[in-house]
Design a protein around this nucleic acid. Structure first.
Lengths: 233, 233
DNA sequence: CACGAAGATGACGGATTCATGACAGGCGTA
DNA sequence: TACGCCTGTCATGAATCCGTCATCTTCGTG
C-alpha cells in the first residue's frame, strides 16, 4: 500500500454534497494534501479498505447511515484518525461524535486554514506511532527489511510471498506482543475483511514452513492459544 | 475503563483567573479527573517538571507570557498533550495555537461535557503509546508480561493457559489485596457468568501446580479462607 | 475433641482450538 | 492460451482446555 508512499498526506473526504466536496477538495489540495472522496458511508468504508488514508474527514449527515454510525464502524477495524466535519454545532453532537471514536470535531462553515491546522495537529500526534514502523527489524536470526520487502536468514533470502511478508512484518513490529487474528486481519488484509479468520492460521503455517528451522515445533512464530500469535526472538 | 484501573488521569489547568480555575476544576473533578493548577506560564512549566500530568489545559492569556509561547516551551521539553482553552475565537488564533504545538483548541464559554469528551479523545489517541511499557508485573520471582501473555520464573517460561494467565494477571494487578471468587469471576470469566464459583478453586489449583515450587504449601497464591485468594510476593 | 464449613484434589467428557493437507479459483506471465 | 504461483476455503484429526462432580483434607469453632 504505502510502499513508495507519496510525501503528501492523503485524506478521505466523506460528504454527500458534491459542492462542498469540491470546495473542500480544492482548499485541501492547496494545502498540499492528496484528497480522495466518498459520497456516503458505504463508499467511505469501501474506500477506506481499498486505500487507507492518513486522515478521514467525515460529515455527519450522510444519505445512507449517519456519521456517528459510520465512525463507529470505522473504529471497529481501524485506528485511522477521524475528524468530524459538520454543520451541527450542538455540544451534544460534539460529545456524541467524539464518543463514537472521532479524534476531532469541527463545525461548518469552516476555515480551510483552521481545518488544515487541525489535520496537521492530529497527524503530528499520530505520525510517530505510525512511523514507528522501523525499516529494519531483527528477530533472532531473521532480518526483516521492510522497504525491500525481504526477509533474510544467515544472509540467505527467504522467498516469501507478499501476504506472508506483511504478516511477519506486522508480527515483528508488534515487538513480541500477542496479536489476535482480528488484529492481524485488519493490519495485513486491510480494513473490512469479513472472511474466515482461519486464513491467518494457514498463512502462519506457510510462514513457518519457510521461516522455521523445524516447522513442527516453531521457535519464532509462536501460537498463543485462544489469543493469537506472536513473534519471539 | 476498568474501575480498579490505575489512577485517575491527571490534568494541569493553567489559567490566571482563579474564578475560572475553580469552575473548571470542579467540573473536571466531577468527570473523574485529578486536577492540578497553575496561574501563569512560569508556574505551569515548573508544575510540569515536578509532576507531569496526562493533559495540559492552557489558557491563552497569561500574565507573564502568552499561551503560544508557553505552549512552544512545553513542547521543547515534553510531548504531553495540550489543549488550548481560551476566549479568543478568531480562526487565526486557532491556527497559531495548533501551530505552537497544541493538540486541540476549544473556546470559552465551554461546556464541561464537551471539554471532557475532547480530553478523552486525546487520551485515547495518546495512551497506547505511553502505556506500552507499563504492562510488566513483577511478583516475587515471577514476571508477568501482559502484552506477550507470558509468565516467566527465573527466565523460564511457564506454560499457562489463557484462563490461568488472566487469573494470575488479575491477582497480580490487585497488588496483594484479596480478591473474592465473585470478583475474579467477573474479571476473568466476564460479567454474565452464572456457573459455579468453584471454577476459581480449580484454576487456582492448576495455577499452583505450574507456578508454585511446592504446590502443597503455596507461597504466592495464598488462600484467604472465607474471602478469596491473593497473590503474595 | 467433634463437628460443620470451606477449600483441595483428582478424574472425566464435552467443547474449543489449532495444525495440516488438499483443492479450486484468480492473476499475471511466458 | 497454458502455465505456475499465490491465495482463500474447507474437512479432518489431534491436542488440550475447561467446567463439573465426587471425594478427601484442612481449618475454625464450640
Amino acid at each position: 500500500m504505502s510502499d513508495t508512499g507519496p510525501v503528501a498526506h492523503s485524506l478521505l473526504l466523506v460528504d454527500d454534497e458534491p459542492r462542498i466536496r469540491r470546495v473542500l477538495r480544492l482548499a485541501l489540495e492547496d494545502e498540499g494534501y492528496q484528497v480522495a472522496e466518498a459520497a456516503n458511508g458505504y463508499d467511505a468504508l469501501a474506500a477506506l479498505r481499498r486505500e487507507p488514508p492518513d486522515v478521514v474527514l467525515l460529515d455527519l449527515m450522510l444519505p445512507d447511515r449517519d456519521g456517528f454510525t459510520v465512525c463507529r464502524e470505522i473504529r471497529r477495524a481501524s485506528d485511522v484518525p477521524v475528524i468530524m466535519v459538520t454543520a451541527r454545532t450542538d455540544s451534544h453532537d460534539v460529545v456524541a461524535g467524539l464518543e463514537a471514536g472521532a479524534d476531532d470535531y469541527v463545525t461548518k462553515p469552516l476555515v480551510a486554514k483552521e481545518l488544515s491546522a487541525r489535520i496537521r495537529a492530529l497527524l503530528r500526534r499520530v505520525e510517530p506511532a505510525g512511523a514507528r514502523q522501523a525499516d529494519l527489524l531483527e528477530v533472532g536470526d531473521l532480518r526483516i527489511d521492510v522497504p525491500a520487502a525481504e526477509v533474510t536468514r544467515d544472509g540467505e533470502v527467504l522467498p516469501l510471498t507478499r501476504t506472508e511478508f506483511k504478516l511477519i512484518a506486522e508480527l515483528a513490529n508488534a515487538d513480541g506482543r500477542v496479536l489476535s487474528r482480528e488484529q492481524l486481519l485488519s493490519k495485513v488484509w486491510g480494513y473490512g475483511y469479513f472472511g474466515d479468520s482461519r486464513i491467518v492460521d494457514v498463512h502462519i503455517r506457510r510462514l513457518r514452513l519457510k521461516v522455521e528451522r523445524d516447522p513442527a515445533s516453531p521457535k519464532h512464530l509462536v501460537t498463543a492459544r485462544g489469543l493469537g500469535y506472536r513473534l519471539v526472538s
